[in-house]
Structure formats: structure tokens, C-alpha cells
Design a protein around this nucleic acid. Structure first.
Length: 244
DNA sequence: CTCGGAAACT
DNA sequence: AGTTTCCGAG
């Protein structure tokens, strides 16, 4: 609920054994490595400073020695329909993660976040997130960086209130695929849930969430080519910024 | 540069 | 499924 659906996908999903491009980008961005790619002026926006160098790094990670920006950028463009990224038009080599507006649109009362820091004082990657980290708690109060991704957090329930014991899991008992070691270490508190409670964010029913409507959209896309103009109209309502 | 179709790859 | 590769079009 706090983040778009894709943000909950772990870096190394059971299906695909390889790193995904957007994880890789977030990783470089998080390191503040700077040379090849940096955060842009807006929240979630990033600029590829050295396209060919970035492509080379990506190629090394994937074992594709002939990777170049032409091919990498094609992969980025596939993210448009998946709603992971969109292009910042007019700005060369500039793209933007779609999680920013989703959060701000739904919670207009949140303070806008100055985003000049190149790194966060704590790690947000799955490997290091697997234990309860008090510094996350602290940082969460000054919500700010796009790097604050939920990755291995259990997905918060779409329903307002449930049995206390169910809070840690989308389903109870947890489905067989659930990595219990990952989930249980979030105790005593699920940071994401504490996040909502601390901030007194409004609770919406699942039907009210634009995100769920986006998911519905993806279902339609997946189910085959249908009425595309209708989809675009839906998109405009949800992501005004993403359209021109 | 940027876009997106098409086909191939893992 | 998520790219990688190739490419014609704007």
C-alpha cells in the first residue's frame, strides 16, 4: 500500500535467478557511486551521466560483454508499461521511478522532500534489511529518499483491520513459498506498518487504491491487446505526470 | 536521442 | 518473464 507493487519484489526472485535492471540501478544510486548515474533534481528522478559506462557495468553484472546504452535503454523502455519507470521528457538520459507520485498523490499532506543527499545513512538492500534496524525507524520519520524501498517487507494488508496475528502476513497461515526467516526477523514490529501508524496516514479500502486499479490495468494488458485508448485514459488519471 | 515491434535468448 | 539483440521511424 505504501509503495507500488513492484517495489515489493525481492532482488532475487525465485523465478528469475538474475538481478533485475531496476534493482541494479537502485544499487548504484544507493552507493552514491555517482560516475555513471546519479539522482536527479526531482524525487525519484535519475540521470545517466555516462550511458556507455553504465551499460558496461550492467553488462559486467549480467555477463553480457556487448551491452551498450542502446540495448540497456530498450530494457528501460520496457519498464514504461510495467509502471516501474517513465521518461522525463526533454531531459536527456533522464528517467524517473514511478513510486514518488504514487506516494505524494495519495498523501498530499506529506512534506516535499529535498533530495540532494546521494546516499542514506543505512542500507536498504534485502540482505541487510533482514533484521530489525532501529535506524530505519528513525529515518522513516523524516521520510525522504526514494531508496527507502520495502523490498523484502511483507506486503501490508490491503484491508484496514485484521486479526493482530495476521498483520505480519498477507495470508495466514503464510503460504508455503513464504520465506519465514526473512519475515520473522522484522519483529518486534513491521517497520512498514509502524510507518503508517506513526504518520496517521489515512486508511483506504482496497477498492479505493489507485495502485489496485493499476494492477487491474496490468491484468488487462497481460490478458491480451484490447481497448488501448481506454487504458491510456486510465493512465492519465493515475499518472498525470507520466503522460504528455 | 527516443520509441516500440519483433524475435531470440536464458 | 525479463531482458538482449536488432532495427526502422519520428
Amino acid at each position: 500500500v505504501l509503495f507500488p507493487d513492484w517495489a515489493y519484489k525481492p532482488a532475487w526472485s525465485p523465478g528469475s535467478r538474475q538481478v533485475q535492471l531496476w534493482h541494479f540501478l537502485l544499487e548504484l544510486l544507493g552507493r552514491g557511486e555517482g560516475g555513471a548515474i546519479t539522482w536527479g533534481s526531482e524525487w525519484g528522478e535519475f540521470v545517466i551521466k555516462d550511458p556507455e559506462r553504465l551499460a558496461k557495468l550492467w553488462g559486467e553484472r549480467k555477463g553480457k560483454p556487448h551491452m551498450n546504452y542502446d540495448k540497456l535503454s530498450r530494457a528501460l523502455r520496457y519498464y514504461y508499461n510495467k509502471r516501474i519507470l517513465h521518461k522525463t521528457k526533454g531531459k536527456r538520459f533522464t528517467y524517473k521511478f514511478n513510486f514518488n507520485k504514487l506516494i505524494l498523490v495519495n498523501y498530499p499532506s506529506l512534506p516535499t522532500c529535498p533530495q540532494n543527499t546521494t546516499s542514506v545513512p543505512f542500507s536498504v538492500f534485502p540482505s541487510q534489511l533482514s533484521f530489525y534496524n532501529p535506524s530505519i525507524d528513525r529515518a522513516v520519520h523524516s521520510i525522504c529518499h526514494p531508496l527507502l524501498m520495502p523490498y523484502s517487507f511483507p506486503k501490508p494488508l490491503p484491508f484496514p483491520q485484521t486479526h493482530p496475528i495476521q498483520r505480519q502476513f498477507p495470508l495466514f497461515p503464510p503460504p508455503s513459498g513464504t520465506n519465514l526467516s526473512e519475515v520473522s526477523c522484522l519483529s518486534p514490529v513491521n517497520p512498514a506498518l509502524q510507518f503508517t501508524q506513526t504518520l496517521n496516514w489515512p486508511v483506504k479500502s482496497s477498492a479505493e487504491w489507485p495502485l489496485n486499479r493499476v494492477m487491474g490495468l496490468q491484468e488487462r494488458i497481460r490478458s491480451g491487446p484490447q481497448d488501448k485508448s481506454h487504458d491510456n485514459q486510465e493512465d492519465r488519471k493515475i499518472f498525470p505526470e507520466a503522460m504528455h
